[in-house]
Design a protein around this nucleic acid. Structure first.
Ligand code: SF4
Ligand code: SF4
Lengths: 161, 161
DNA sequence: TTATTGTGGATATTTGATATCCATAAGGAT
DNA sequence: ATCCTTATGGATATCAAATATCCACAATAA
């Protein structure tokens, strides 16, 4: 039960895009170089973010990606769901249908207790991810990363956007 | 990002075992028949539960599994972790190490903000699963399942344990 | 003795994650 | 106009994990 590695990449890319000066963009190649991940595969994650309306891409030289919304309007959950999908972690295959003791005519029963508990746990997970936005992330990163590093990142981004 | 189907099977089996009369056991074959799942594969899940100390098996005819603890001492989380493992859903591959702007000598940094948020979400998920035990499940099932069905299940179990 | 059961190892099969490649259209620079 | 760079999306290869089966073995009750 593990999230795709694309989720980690997508979160990092969004974190970087959130700090981008107004009007600037970063290309897939730049984002891949910065994080040391394969460009072609990262591209799939960025396309998923684009489809979900979290980032928007533009073509041509000087093209690339930028956030489609203000950082405070993009939650971790938005990003995770865009890349990972919205399926629940607990898949109910209705094995109770095979139960030899069940009445055969009770067809459309409500989801059973077991499934409900598992789905509530999923919802608790999502609720936590909904609670943190890219704006929150930027604030935390600003407090944790050495000023020296932040300066170098800004310079690097400035040169490639 | 999906839990193994063994998780669903294990939860159902534990639910059934929780209602077992004192001293009785159910074999892998019976549990597989009841739920309509492959016996050999279900066996792996039961072995995981046994290793985790949640159920205990005994050999020979009239052998089989029973709970190793009172139902109130077994949480959903215990069962899920026994079958699925304890890895976190978010695997941090430390891609920040590839960041061209990072100081090369900052080696043992704390887990970054992104990883912390993801892990807190995992913890919220686990917390919810820790909060419900097999005793809770039994109470809920008793309230939801028709008395007629409960009676038939008891008869079926009685005949095979 | 015999039939039944859990345990655990080996292994096959299927699915999904990971990764690469290429064709295409669009935009900016010259 | 031309050329280079870019995002988009389809096709496909590669690899790991989930799913499933089979068998050898020891323990145990009848
Ligand atoms: S009893 Fe619940 S968890 Fe099990 S198969 Fe039915 S709905 Fe799913
Ligand atoms: S920045 Fe955080 S999530 Fe990303 S690789 Fe480092 S520890 Fe992991």
């Amino acid at each position: 039960m593990q999230l795709r590695n694309q989720v980690e990449w997508a979160l990092h890319c969004c974190g970087l895009l959130a700090g981008l000066p107004e009007g600037r963009r970063l290309s897939t190649k730049s984002l891949a170089d910065f994080h040391g991940v394969p460009k072609e595969y990262l591209s799939k994650a960025l396309q998923a973010l684009s489809t979900a309306g979290i980032v928007e891409g533009s073509l041509g030289p000087a093209g690339g990606y930028r956030l489609a919304k203000p950082p405070s309007a993009v939650s971790f959950l938005d990003i995770v769901e865009a890349v990972e999908g919205r399926r629940r972690t607990f898949a109910c295959t209705e094995i109770r249908r095979n139960n030899p003791c069940r009445a055969t005519d009770t067809c459309d029963m409500a989801p059973c207790t077991i499934a409900r508990v598992m789905w509530e746990a999923d919802e608790a997970w999502r609720e936590r991810l909904r609670a943190t936005t890219l704006a929150d992330l930027a604030a935390m990163l600003g407090a944790e990363i050495p000023a020296e590093t932040l300066r170098k990142v800004a310079a690097w981004v400035g040169a490639r956007s």
